[in-house]
Nucleic acid binder design. Structure first.
Lengths: 157, 157
DNA sequence: CCAACCTACATGACATGTCATTCATTCCCG
DNA sequence: CGGGAATGAATGACATGTCATGTAGGTTGG
C-alpha cells in the first residue's frame, strides 16, 4: 500500500482550528451551565428530550435512540440524575424488561431555569460571530459527515 | 430584560446537526485510535506535541499552552501516560518548581505506528465528504468562534 | 412447547476530566 | 535583603464515559 494520504496545509489548518474550537466551546458551554444551573450538558440533553414529550416520560431505549448515546452511558447517567432528584425510574407494565424515566418537578424546574441562559450563551459565543452563509454551510457539512459516519440512517425527528 | 433570543429554525438545525456530528465523529476517531494503537485522542495530542520538538521533551506548562488543557487534566494525564511507559518526567535544573516531560522510545513508536491510520480515518470520515469551499468555510468559522471565546489570543504556533 | 436467540437494562472495573487545594520555588517591590 | 504575590506542578475527591459482562424477560422457528 502507498503511504497514508496526509492532510494538505489547508486541511491541516481547518482540522486544527475545528478541533480547538470544538474543545474550547464545549468546555465553555459546560462551565456556564454548571455554574448557572448546576447542570451538565449531558443533563441538559436528557432533560430536553423528556420535556419534549407530553407527559415527561420516556423509555430508556427511546432516549438512547434520540441522543445516540451508548446504552451504558445512559444507564449510568440516569442513575446519577435520579440520585440528584432530576428524574425517577418507574417500572413498565407492558414490558417486564423495560422501565420508564420520568421527569420530576425538580427536573422540570431545573431545565426551565437553565434554558434561557444556555441558549443565550450559545448565541453569544457561537452564532453572533457567524453570518447566515456560514451557518448554512456548517449544517450541510455536518449532515454530510454524519452521513458518512452512519450510512443510511434516518435523521432524528 | 426581554426573554432570551431563541435560535431560529436554521440555527436550530445547524446547531443540532453540528452537535451530533461532533459527538459521533469524536467517538469514532477515539475508537479507531484505541482499537488500532491502544492510544486515546488525548494521548495522541500529547505525543504529537512532543514529537514536534527536536529532543522530544517539553515543560508541562508548554504542553498546557499548546494543547490548551486545564493544568490538572494535563498533570493527571501525564501521570497515566508515564504509568504506561509513553513518557517519563524529569527534573528541571533551571527551575526548581518545574519538570520536563520526555518522550520514551515506546512513546515514539506508538505515535509513529498510530499516525497513518489516524490520518487516514480523519480523511475518510471527514474530508473525503467535503469540498474545498466547505473546508475553507469551516476554518474561518472556527477561527471566528475561537476569537470570541478568547478575545485577543495568539494563534498557536 | 421450548430452546436458542434477541432485547432492555443494570453493573463493576476502570479511564478520563474537573474543581479545589496544597506545595515548593521564584519573582518583585518596598 | 525580606516577605507577600505569582508561578509550576501534583494530588484527592468526585463526576463522567467506556468496555465487558450479567440478567431478566420477550420472541420465534422447528
Amino acid at each position: 500500500m502507498t503511504g497514508p494520504r496526509w492532510l494538505d496545509d489547508d486541511e491541516q489548518r481547518a482540522w486544527r482550528s475545528y478541533l480547538r474550537m470544538q474543545a474550547r466551546l464545549t468546555a465553555r458551554l459546560n462551565r456556564q451551565l454548571q455554574a448557572d444551573s448546576g447542570l451538565s450538558l449531558a443533563d441538559y440533553d436528557v432533560l430536553v428530550q423528556l420535556t419534549d414529550t407530553p407527559d415527561g416520560r420516556l423509555r430508556p431505549f427511546e432516549l438512547q435512540r434520540d441522543l445516540q448515546w451508548e446504552q451504558s452511558r445512559l444507564s449510568h447517567h440516569l442513575t446519577r440524575m435520579q440520585r440528584r432528584g432530576l428524574v425517577v425510574r418507574e417500572e413498565c407494565a407492558d414490558d417486564g424488561r423495560g422501565a420508564f424515566v420520568v421527569l420530576t418537578d425538580a427536573g422540570r424546574d431545573a431545565i426551565v431555569a437553565a434554558a434561557p441562559g444556555h441558549v443565550e450563551t450559545v448565541r453569544r459565543l457561537f452564532f453572533d460571530g457567524l453570518d447566515a452563509e456560514q451557518v448554512a454551510t456548517l449544517e450541510r457539512l455536518s449532515a454530510r459527515v454524519l452521513d458518512r459516519l452512519d450510512p443510511g440512517e434516518e435523521p432524528p425527528a
